[in-house]
Amino acid sequence: MSEATRDPISAGDPLLQLRASPHLKAPDSTPKIMWNVVGSLIPVIAAATWYFGPSALLVIGAATLGAVLTERAFGTPGSLADGSAAITGILLGLCLPAGVPLWIAFIGGAFGIGFGKLVFGGLGQNVFNPALLGRAFLQAAFPAVMTTWPGSPGEIPSWSQLRGDNLAIPFASPSTDAVTGATPLGLMKFESTPTDVTRLMIGDISGSVGETAGVVILLCGIYLAARNYLNWRIPVSIFAAVALFSGILHLLDPARFASPLFALFSGGLMLGALYMATDMVTSPVTNAGAWIFGIGIGILVVVIRTWGGLPEGVMYAILLMNALVPFINRATQPRPYGSRGRRAGREAPA
């Protein structure tokens, strides 16, 4: 356009848009958040592959396929693009033992999405974390398979060897000739043998596919928290509650109860606290609620680990607190501006 045009209409031929305010928009979008979470899981997946070989990728892939195909078949058209089904699948894969048959991983993903999410109306409506619901389903359905842990990476002769009967025919039992081991929590609970904390942190132990490399998960979680894609209050309160509670127990009887550091880095606590509990849909919307939610999870984890029949309780702790979330949300409604005196502590004048 030449400088001569003074009439604004002819300058850019604006088809004037009418929109409600605000006319600006923060750059974040739901798919962006979801895919960022997926991206932040890549180091975790890489660590899993490093420790558990091709089995890790196979299991994660099968779980993701189950989740994604179910979403595609029964979900709203196009809902795959928001990335939430992929997250569910990957997270589910990360919390399965590396040796599970792929068909079981697939069913877990399908169940998680189908019964955990789509029944409630899809993205944003579900009450329970779909990945954990899938995991809980598998745990209840195939308890033997789900507690058959591959040996710790040091015990496996070669990296490329499958860590179990991954390729079992659908609906058939896996054969049981793989090298098996015990998780640090199992060793602690049933044999009172603590595992060295440094090994826990770097992940050179037996356990679920993606939950062993504690430090990697922690770093990825910090990245997400820094970008405000997870509410840091939830993991912080979980860690605090677990450390405090297990610390007290440890002081009472160091031989029976593990140290707080062991409690923090063993089992699925890192993965659960940073990726499962912080699932936006199934955690409280209020910050006060986030604290309550996290502390509740922390306490339940220690209770189940210490007095329950199972060595690990992160999954159940999160699911139980998921069920409480609607209640917590109601109980922690923010006090609106100007209604001083009945304001919750969160909004107390700074």
């Binding site: 029949g309 199972l310 139980l320």
Partner: peptide, 8 residues
């Protein structure tokens, strides 16, 4: 399912 966590 969630309450199964209390098993034992």
């Amino acid at each position: 399912l969630a309450f199964m966590g209390f098993a034992g």
